[in-house]
Lab assay of single mutants.
Amino acid sequence: ATNIVGKVKWYNSTKNFGFIEQDNGGKDVFVHKSAVDAAGLHSLEEGQDVIFDLEEKQGKAYAVNLRIK
């Protein structure tokens, strides 16, 4: 899925991951530091509006192509 809109539920910059809540009511999506770095960001803030693509690997969904809304 592409261009999914959501809000950062939480992001832990020490542990380098967090979760994004989808605006469409879907399951929360894992986001890793690598996606944050690829977006040219240092971190994510709770409540921040983002747009992302959804990829699945080994049955787990995660956010890629992250951008600030």
Rank of each mutant, 00 (worst) to 15 (best):
F52I: 04
A63S: 05
K57R: 11
Y62G: 07
E45C: 06
D28W: 06
K69W: 03
E55W: 12
Y11N: 01
I68H: 14
N3V: 04
V31S: 01
E56M: 12
L41K: 10
Y62S: 11
F30Q: 02
N16L: 08
Y62F: 11
K57S: 09
G18Y: 02
F17R: 02
F19H: 02
D37P: 02
H42M: 12
V5D: 07
R67E: 08
A1Q: 09
K27M: 08
E46D: 10
K57F: 13
D37Y: 13
V29Q: 03
D37E: 14
D28V: 05
F52Q: 00
Q48V: 14
S43C: 05
K9F: 03
K27Y: 09
F17T: 02
H32P: 04
I68R: 14
V29M: 04
Y11Q: 01
G40F: 06
V64Y: 07
D28Q: 07
E56N: 12
F30G: 02
D23S: 15
A63G: 09
V31Y: 05
K27R: 14
I20G: 00
Y62L: 07
Y11D: 01
N16A: 11
D49L: 15
A61D: 10
A1D: 11
Y11F: 13
R67W: 08
G59V: 06
F30I: 04
I4E: 06
E56D: 10
A61R: 08
R67C: 04
G25P: 07
K7Y: 06
N16E: 08
D49E: 09
N3Y: 07
I51G: 04
K33E: 04
V8P: 01
N65H: 11
H42K: 11
Q58L: 13
K7M: 06
E21H: 15
F19E: 02
D28N: 08
W10S: 05
G40V: 04
D53S: 04
A61P: 09
F52A: 03
T14C: 05
R67L: 07
N65S: 07
N65I: 02
S13K: 09
K9Y: 02
V36T: 03
D28L: 07
Y11S: 01
K7D: 01
Q58S: 08
I4V: 11
G40I: 03
K27L: 13
G25M: 08
K57N: 11
A1F: 09
K27W: 09
